[in-house]
Write a protein that binds this DNA or RNA. Structure first.
Length: 217
DNA sequence: ACCCAGAGCATATGCGATCA
DNA sequence: TGATCGCATATGCTCTGGGT
């Protein structure tokens, strides 16, 4: 996933062309107000209520949260977007990170994935919407670990506990190709693939970095 | 440069399980 | 019994890399 594209794609949503701001506006430090969990809840509700098509979205969102300005809510949204992309990119160790934030609620409630699916998500065009986000080796290894623990078919738990960056449907789809790959083993003309990493390879890796997934019981 | 097969992700669809 | 949910599978689409 290309975080840059994501942000660019959201610039129009964040700063609609219909609004005129002076050139320094984007660079302004907004008041670094502290967001309480109550305010975050209201923020979340407002985001759900006023979708990206809503005219003057941020004004309306701000109006729903007493004490918060338009700048505050935009800044909060930007941070949220950044956080989610960081999590998705594996740049943030989830367990520690999840201690307290609105993102925690999103991830916990799996809204993170719904967020990803929206056009304004980490894709910037219709083409990307079709293209999909490639699985990383790390995600595949987590998938294999989940497969070992929960077994074939329990995609929901594998998604919840191991490959939290993918939905159960995505995990199932990935598994489908994984097993097809196993079936095609022995075929001569095969490209190297992420699916060549199997549970056999997993054993060595997990012994060395088992503590990498502390949320895994 | 072009073509084509293979790889990979997302989405659509059907079916069974569960619940009110 | 109908509605809803979750899973498995089929299909569609794009991208990539190798062959010519």
């Amino acid at each position: 996933m290309v975080k840059g594209d994501w942000n660019l794609a959201n610039m129009e949503t964040l700063y609609p062309a219909s609004h005129t701001f002076n050139s320094n506006w984007l660079m302004q430090e907004c008041n670094s107000t502290i967001w309480t969990s109550e305010e975050n809840k209201k923020f979340e509700s407002a985001l759900a209520f006023f979708d990206k098509e809503t005219p003057d979205r941020w004004i309306k969102v701000a109006a729903m949260i007493p004490g918060k300005s338009v700048l505050d809510v935009i800044e909060q949204y930007k941070e949220l977007v950044s956080d989610i992309c960081d999590i998705e990119a594996g740049r943030v160790p989830l367990p520690g990170y999840l201690a307290s934030s609105f993102t925690f609620e999103l991830v916990k409630n799996r809204e993170f994935n719904a967020f990803r699916k929206r056009p304004l998500g980490c894709r910037s065009s219709d083409q990307e919407k079709k293209k999909g986000v490639p699985w990383t080796e790390d995600e595949h290894r987590r998938f294999l670990m989940g497969l070992q623990k929960h077994g074939k078919g329990d995609w929901r738990n594998i998604s919840r506990n191991f490959v939290i960056t993918k939905t159960s449907t995505q995990v199932a789809s990935h598994a489908q190709k994984y097993y097809l790959r196993q079936l095609s083993e022995g075929k001569e003309k095969r490209r190297p693939s992420i699916h060549d990493i199997t549970t056999v390879h997993l054993t060595d890796a997990t012994q060395s970095d088992d503590c990498e997934f502390p949320w895994h019981d």
